[in-house]
Structures are given as C-alpha cells and as structure tokens.
Design a protein around this nucleic acid. Structure first.
Lengths: 188, 188
DNA sequence: GGCGTTTGCCTATAGTGATTAGGCAGATGG
DNA sequence: CCATCTGCCTAATCACTATAGGCAAACGCC
C-alpha cells in the first residue's frame, strides 16, 4: 500500500488551509483525512488528536502572522509603522479567516508562553519607539493597540459593521489617524 | 410520565448557564437534556436543533447585555457614561464568559438585524453626545469604541494579558482615560 | 365526569466524528 | 537479504446530532 507521506507539519498546513476554506471549527480529522486520501486513524500517528491539531494550527498561524508583522515593520517608524502593523493584522484576517480564528484559540499557559504570542507584543512595543511613552504607559499602549487591532478585525470579519454606512475602509483609516494622534498626545 | 415543562425560553436560559459553566462550544443538546432529566429527542419539540439553540442563546445574551448597558447609561454622560458602558461589557464578559462568547456567534443577516446588536451601536452612539463629534466621525468613533471594548475584553478573557505586568485593572483604567482624551481631541 | 384532540416526551434508529487497539506490509539498515 | 521499524490499515466503541413514529398526559368541550 502506497504511503501518503504524512507528518505533523504537512497536516498542520493542510489543516490551516482547511480552516480558511471551511472555518476553523469545521476543521475535523475526517476532513483532513479525506484531503490526504487516508483513513482517520492514520492521523493519530502524527498528531495526538483533534485538540492537538487545532493547537498546532494556532501556533502555526501565530508564527506566520508574527513573521509578516516583522517584515512589514522593517525600516518603518512612527505612523508609518503603526499603519503597516495594523494592516498586516487586518489583511491576514481577511485573506486567512480560518488561520486568524485559530490565533484566538486559548492555549495552555506553557504553550502560550512558548508561542509567537510574546513576539506580537514585542512588535507592537517596537512601534512605540517612534512615540514618547515611558514605563508602564508603554504596556498600556501595547494593550490598547492589541485591543483595537484584534477588536476591529474580528468585528469586521464577523459582519458587525455590515449594514451600516460609511464603508469600513474609511473608518479603518480614520482609526489609524486617531491612534496616531492619541499616541502623540498620551494623557498622564 | 411526568412532564418536565420544557419550552424554548427555559432551554435557552439553561443553555446560557451551561455556556457560562462549561464554555459556549461545550453547550450540547445532550448536556442540556441531562440537566432537565429528559431525553435528547425531546428537545427537538422546542428548538430546531443545536444551531438553533446556540442562536437563541446568542440573541438572549445580546439582549441581556444591551439591557444592562442601557441601565448603566441612564443619567450619565461624558467620561462617566463612557466608563459605565465599558465596564458593563467587561463585567459581563468576566461574570458570564459563555454568554459573552455567545454574543460573538455569527448570525445570519436578518436575524442579526432583528437582534439587540443595533441597540448596542445606538447605546455607544449615545455616549458620543457628550463629546463634540459630527457626521461620519460619530460612526468612526462608535466603531473604534466597539473595537476597543470587544478587543480588550476578549484578549483579557482569552488570557492574552496574563504573564505580563502591570495588572489589567490599571491598564483598563488608563485605556478609558486615553479614549476619553481621544474623543475630546478627535483629529480631523 | 367522560371523550376526543392536542402535544409533550418517549423509544428506536441512523449518521458523523473522535479515539483506541491491534495487524499487515512497505521502508530501512546492518 | 533478513530483521526491524514504522506508516497506514481494519475493527470496535463512544458521544452527539437528528428524524420517524408512538403513547399518554393535559386540555377543551359538552
């Protein structure tokens, strides 16, 4: 019987594709097995089960997103950097909704700490070098930016802004203006 | 055989409780049936199935949350109103994580339009009366506030702010200060 | 109070996905 | 070239969803 050449990484990537096509919660071992024309039980040699697969997809997506963010930030600063990072998140969510949904999976503490999650915080913090924030205000600002990016993107993706004018493109650009202005005039 | 007195509303409320206890995606007809000491098939007389139950829980939670928001806003304006609304969302998510997760369920367009979703937008817009924003800037600000509230609350709930100092209480209060300041000095 | 109708909850059955145990054969290495 | 390993298999079990059809409790009417 011909071997399919499965391994955890190929399964994870295929699972991520499946997530983008069907939605993250439609990622099943059955669907994945069909894709490789293999029996479901065969997957258990490579991943521990359904939960493990999802966690792997989440880690993969977090890392991929952090890589794109790092690329986008290279050579930029100030508002330019702010917009670049924000757009990476938004574009990623729009082009890879399943992968983006995966990044929101709750990981257990050790896994989360070893994930690319902290890199995201670092990248956001890097943006603040172009602004005049010190001490704990930096952390507050990192959290605010994370909240806005994640909140906006997930509301837009979830259709929360449908059925209301004006279009989201304009709002997005005005929000970036507002954040830039806020960071330049951060209140004590 | 004694009747259990089931109906859609009791099932929805019990489902919401189940969501808070086990997580929204652990809400199953099986678990709900056990809770009422009834067979799973019996639930189908009251809800169309699992998806219908989840949608009902989502609508219930959206309405409950809008009611609390409306209560909290009564008699307040300016930053006082901003903080009151923000805290309603945050407190709801912390005390009722399953219900809060339910509010993020993607509803089909007609259902969404008939839900309490638009009321949330209206309540947020009401806050802006205390600030000097006109025309489309109001909509942009509504979306920004929605993004921050939802983003912060879901990151905090998802553990995204664990393992990093300072505590989230301080960040939350500083974010409210920052939003108030931003709304008072909204850039053109 | 009896009686027909409604309706609430039941049993039975079937389909899908997750998971584990154990087997066979293709790949690998001395 | 044979022993071992390992990749994928079949088979079986369990949980949840869903539908069809049945029985009896509740209800309304006289």
């Amino acid at each position: 019987m011909a071997r399919a050449g499965l391994n955890a990484e190929r399964l994870t990537r295929a699972g991520a594709d499946l997530a983008d096509e069907l939605g993250f919660d439609q990622v099943t071992l059955s669907a994945l097995a069909s894709r490789f024309e293999v029996r479901v039980a065969s997957l258990y040699s490579h991943v521990r089960g359904s939960a493990d697969l999802r966690a792997r997809i989440a880690l993969f997506a977090l890392a991929e997103l952090a890589d794109r963010a790092a690329d986008a930030l290279a050579g930029r600063s100030g508002k330019d950097a702010l917009a670049a990072l924000a757009n990476v998140y938004r574009d990623y969510a729009r082009t890879h909704p399943g992968r983006y949904a995966a990044t929101q999976l709750r990981l257990d503490p050790e896994t989360a700490a070893a994930s690319a999650g902290p890199r995201h915080a670092q990248l956001t913090r890097a943006i603040l070098r172009g602004y005049d924030l010190t001490g704990t205000d930096q952390t507050h600002a990192v959290r605010l930016l994370g909240s806005v990016f994640h909140g906006y993107v997930s509301l837009e993706l979830g259709g929360g802004f449908d059925h209301s004018a004006p279009d989201t493109e304009e709002t997005w650009s005005r929000i970036l203006d507002a954040l830039d202005s806020l960071l330049r005039n951060w209140p004590d």
